[in-house]
Amino acid sequence: MDIKLRKTWNENHKILSEIILKRAEHTRAIQLFLSQHSLLHSSSISETPLVTLEDEMLKNLDETTFRQYPVPNPDTKNSIAWHLWHITRIEDMTMNILLSNEQQVLFAENWLEKMNIGFTHSGNDMSEKEIALMSSKIDINSLKAYRTAVGKRTRQVVSSLQPGQFKGKVEQNRIKRLFEENAVSQNSKWLADYWSKKNIAGLILMPATRHIFLHLNKCIRIKDRLHKLQAKPK
């Protein structure tokens, strides 16, 4: 995903924001979302011929760089592993609890065991010790597979929305589910409060798209900086 395509993505996200609540534009909004979303996951999900932002992030990404924590970046010290896991958990819980009120993908195929981690929450307000542990232990291939499964489910969920549903508010019983399933920790109650004020369109425009875009860009900056440091003569 080169600079030109990133610019186009941002322009299209603005268009999506403008049309998503217009009932007459429902079909167009769904199609634009699917196009935007496809560029934030592996190209294998939608079989797009374009190099996606995730494709770019994973290219030449070695395991040491993937797991390194903390990282020497000015805007984050969290590992690429944490960022990738965080955006996937956020997408899973918002699309499958808050939007569709269905089972999280996390629990559908025993992903916790496959990923070799015990954390089910979003990762917000994680301690340094927890981030270091997760970064060192998580199974990389299983994390990628979990991310693919979440992305595919999101596309199914959003494609099934009917005209007018983007205006629907997030139901409070679904906010309650976030805590019951330890998707959001008590220390991150602010996050649940934030989502509780959103409508379905708000979930589409941030957790399912913009949030992923921002974190994948951070991952690319982390990778590039660490590779430059590794290349410096000692």
Rank of each mutant, 00 (worst) to 15 (best):
E18C: 03
P49Y: 09
K137I: 01
L133E: 03
L40Q: 10
H86D: 07
L34I: 05
E102R: 14
K169V: 11
A192H: 11
N187P: 00
D125K: 04
Q165V: 07
T8R: 13
S79M: 08
V184Y: 03
K7F: 02
T48L: 11
D125V: 03
W195Y: 15
C219Y: 06
I90V: 15
L39G: 02
S196R: 14
I117M: 02
L112S: 02
T94P: 06
N101E: 13
W195N: 14
L226T: 10
L58Y: 01
I131L: 00
I220K: 14
L205Q: 15
T65G: 05
N60E: 13
F166M: 15
P70K: 12
K176R: 12
R23W: 04
W195M: 12
R147C: 04
W82R: 14
V157D: 11
N73T: 12
D2A: 07
M57Y: 02
F33S: 04
P74C: 13
D55E: 11
P207E: 13
L226C: 07
W111E: 10
E91P: 05
L99N: 09
S196K: 15
I138W: 00
R174H: 15
F179T: 01
K77L: 04
A183S: 13
I138P: 00
S142H: 01
P49W: 10
G123M: 01
H37Y: 00
H83D: 12
H13I: 12
L214N: 09
N10C: 12
L226P: 13
I204N: 11
K77P: 04
A145E: 10
S17P: 08
L216Y: 12
W9G: 06
Q68C: 03
R28E: 06
L61R: 12
D92V: 07
E47N: 15
H215W: 06
F107V: 05
I175C: 08
V184R: 12
V170G: 03
I204Y: 09
L203M: 05
A192I: 10
R210M: 10
P74D: 14
L21G: 15
E18M: 04
E63A: 13
H211E: 04
S44G: 03
H86A: 11
R210Q: 11
K59Y: 12
C219V: 06
I15S: 02
M206F: 15
Q172M: 05
S159M: 15
N173F: 02
R67T: 06
K223H: 03
R89Y: 02
K59Q: 15
A108W: 02
S79F: 03
A29R: 09
V105I: 14
K197Q: 13
S46A: 11
I222N: 12
E91H: 09
Y194K: 14
N96G: 10
L205T: 10
N60R: 12
K137C: 01
L53F: 06
H37A: 10
S136Y: 04
D62N: 14
C219N: 07
W9N: 07
R221F: 04
F166Y: 04
Y146H: 05
L61E: 09
H86L: 08
M206S: 14
P70L: 06
L98W: 08
Y146A: 02
G151T: 02
P49H: 10
I97K: 13
I97Y: 09
K169M: 13
I138C: 03
A145H: 02
K167H: 11
S122P: 06
P207W: 14
N12L: 09
H211C: 14
C219H: 08
I20H: 07
